[in-house]
Each structure stands twice: as C-alpha cells, then as structure tokens.
Amino acid sequence: MKAMKALRELPLHLMLLPGALIVFVYCYVPMVGVTIAFQQFVPVKGLFGSEWIGLDNFRYVLNMPDIGRVVWNTLFISVMKIVAGLTVPIAIAILLNEVRLQFFKKTFQTLVYLPHFLSWIIISGILIDILSPSEGVVNRIVQALGGRSVFFLGDNGWFPFTLVASDVWKEFGFSTIVYLAAITGINPSLYEAAVMDGAGRWKQMRHVTLPGMLPVIVLLATLSLGNVLNAGFEQVFNLYSPSVYESGDILDTLIYRIGILDAQFGVATAIGLLKSFVSLILISLSYFLAYRLANYRIF
C-alpha cells in the first residue's frame, strides 16, 4: 500500500526537483563563501589559497568607529518602517471598508497598489525631482505656504523620515489588500448584533472590525521581526549621499562600500555573517511568536 502511494506521489516529487536544484545551486552552494569572513581574502588566490586569520575580521568590525552609528541607523529606520507599515495599511483598510461607492473604492485600491510594482530606481528619480530644494514641487508648496525650503534628501534630520514616508507610500497599497481580506472574513452577523445593541460606526470598528483583524495583525507584526536588520538596501542606496551618511548609512550600504568599493572582502563578509546570524535568531523568534500568538505554522 505504501509502495503504491509512493509511486503515485513520484511525479509530484519530480516536479519539485528543478526548484530544489535551483535553491541548492543559488542558496546553498554560495554559502561556501562564508569562509571569506575568516580569511585575508585575495581574489587571485581564491578561497583555498588565501591566508586564514580566524576572528581578526570580526574584531576589526567591532572596533570600527562608525559601526555603532550604522547599527543604530539600521534599527531606527527599520523599526519605523515596520510600525508605519502596520499602522497606515490598517487605517486605510478600515476607512476603505466604510466606503460604499464601489467605483471609488476600486479606483483608489488600484491607484495605491500601483507603486508596489515600481522599482526603487524609478521611484528614487521621482523623489529626487519632487523633493528638490530648489525646483521640487513639495518645496514650492512649502514656500507658497510661507515656510522655508527643506533639503529632504540632504539633511540628516529629515532623511530617515523621508525614507520611511516613501517606503510607506510605495508599499501600503499592497498591505492594505491583506487587511481588507481579513475584514471581509469577519462574520456579518457580528455587525448586525452590534447595530441591534445601538453601536455606531465608530464602536463597530472598535469592537468588531479591529478584533476581527487582530489575528492577521499579530501574525504580520511578529513575522516582521525578522526584518529588523533589513532597512532597505535598494531604497537607501538610490537615495542617500555622503552628506547623510550620519543618519542614513545602514549595514547593507556599509557592506557594499567596504566590500565592493574598498575591496575589503573579508571585513564585508564578516559584517554580513554577523547580520545573517542575528537575523536568523530574530526570524526564529518571530515564527515562534507567530505560532504562540496567532497559531501560524510553516508546516
């Protein structure tokens, strides 16, 4: 019986083979390069010819004068993105749920969903134009209202918040769809019972809509813990400049500059390995919390 079952499932396993092979080649084979973190790596000598220096690269990283600031920038930007990325879509989803004009509702959903499909290269070009301190439309509006021009992409005080605002603008439409789906799964009889008890729209939102969305909110919030050290390399790389390194330099951009521009491959790999190790712990913690708080399982 088991042999017949295994024979029936054989085509399904064969279908998985190409995907498993691709994952092995592109995700597991490159892990051999982790050894660079423990070497004075010289590309000409290769992985097996470079000098083994143990933990010297890690000591160098921990003694770098800017490493504390870079870690803080990474945590500050990513935590703000996580918080804003949860609150804004939830609020928009609740407001859209109250809209009764279907044409407006669908049109708005489509418009806010479109930026998700644009790359950060395109969006960075748009942001550089509209946020320009001299010719940008945003600063022209600020000046027309009596304010002073703001260098959003060149001021250390404004740059992190500009990153968060642009990231939310790009992604909140996609996240809104998830929360709208959660709202549609709420039993309509709960709203009917709330109306019978005299609850208005505000109380229905507080006592029916939000509790109904809570499992999805908890799930996405806990899963987002794994991205605490991922502040968005593509976005920061396309928008930052040396003038905002103090507030905008993150771990990924530091790895890029040290590894690609300065050719310190061992140091860059050491930073990446430390980041991956911490991310592994955070991802494991997020899945554990998702299981305990939202009954979410991978398998």
Score class of each variant (00 low, 15 high):
residue 105 K to D: 14
residue 6 A to S: 11
residue 126 I to T: 13
residue 2 K to Y: 12
residue 149 S to R: 06
residue 218 V to L: 14
residue 138 V to D: 05
residue 6 A to T: 05
residue 171 E to V: 05
residue 239 L to E: 01
residue 189 S to K: 14
residue 20 A to S: 09
residue 157 G to E: 15
residue 279 S to M: 10
residue 82 I to W: 01
residue 243 S to P: 02
residue 234 E to Q: 11
residue 221 A to W: 06
residue 106 K to N: 13
residue 288 F to Q: 06
residue 280 L to Y: 05
residue 105 K to H: 11
residue 97 N to A: 03
residue 196 M to S: 12
residue 266 G to C: 02
residue 3 A to F: 09
residue 133 P to Q: 09
residue 163 L to Q: 06
residue 217 I to C: 10
residue 194 A to D: 00
residue 210 L to W: 03
residue 193 A to C: 09
residue 299 F to R: 11
residue 281 I to K: 05
residue 151 F to V: 06
residue 221 A to M: 10
residue 252 D to I: 07
residue 30 P to T: 08
residue 226 G to Q: 03
residue 182 A to S: 14
residue 7 L to H: 08
residue 164 V to G: 10
residue 72 W to P: 04
residue 136 G to A: 04
residue 286 S to K: 01
residue 37 A to Q: 01
residue 261 L to V: 10
residue 152 F to G: 02
residue 49 G to P: 03
residue 44 V to Q: 13
residue 53 I to Q: 10
residue 173 G to A: 01
residue 39 Q to V: 12
residue 74 T to F: 15
residue 187 N to F: 03
residue 171 E to M: 04
residue 184 T to A: 15
residue 248 G to A: 13
residue 147 G to Y: 00
residue 230 N to C: 07
residue 150 V to W: 01
residue 122 I to L: 12
residue 99 V to T: 14
residue 142 V to P: 02
residue 135 E to M: 13
residue 200 G to Q: 01
residue 98 E to R: 07
residue 31 M to A: 02
residue 114 L to W: 09
residue 241 S to C: 04
residue 298 I to N: 12
residue 154 G to I: 11
residue 61 V to P: 02
residue 105 K to I: 08
residue 39 Q to M: 10
residue 25 V to K: 11
residue 66 D to I: 12
residue 228 V to N: 04
residue 271 I to K: 01
residue 94 I to N: 05
residue 61 V to T: 07
residue 254 L to N: 03
residue 19 G to A: 14
residue 151 F to D: 11
residue 231 A to H: 02
residue 251 L to Y: 05
residue 182 A to Q: 06
residue 292 R to N: 00
residue 74 T to A: 11
residue 143 Q to W: 01
residue 200 G to P: 02
residue 279 S to K: 04
residue 140 R to P: 00
residue 65 P to E: 05
residue 130 I to G: 05
residue 206 R to V: 07
residue 278 V to L: 13
residue 44 V to L: 13
residue 139 N to L: 04
residue 118 L to Q: 04
residue 19 G to D: 09
residue 82 I to P: 00
residue 245 Y to C: 03
residue 182 A to N: 07
residue 141 I to K: 04
residue 208 V to P: 00
residue 91 A to I: 13
residue 59 R to L: 06
residue 229 L to K: 02
residue 270 A to P: 05
residue 71 V to N: 07
residue 70 V to C: 02
residue 174 F to H: 02
residue 76 F to H: 11
residue 56 D to E: 14
residue 194 A to H: 00
residue 89 P to W: 01
residue 40 Q to K: 14
residue 90 I to C: 03
residue 290 A to L: 10
residue 1 M to V: 15
residue 287 Y to T: 08
residue 260 I to Y: 10
residue 274 L to S: 10
residue 48 F to G: 14
residue 224 S to I: 00
residue 201 R to M: 07
residue 237 F to L: 08
residue 261 L to E: 14
residue 212 G to S: 00
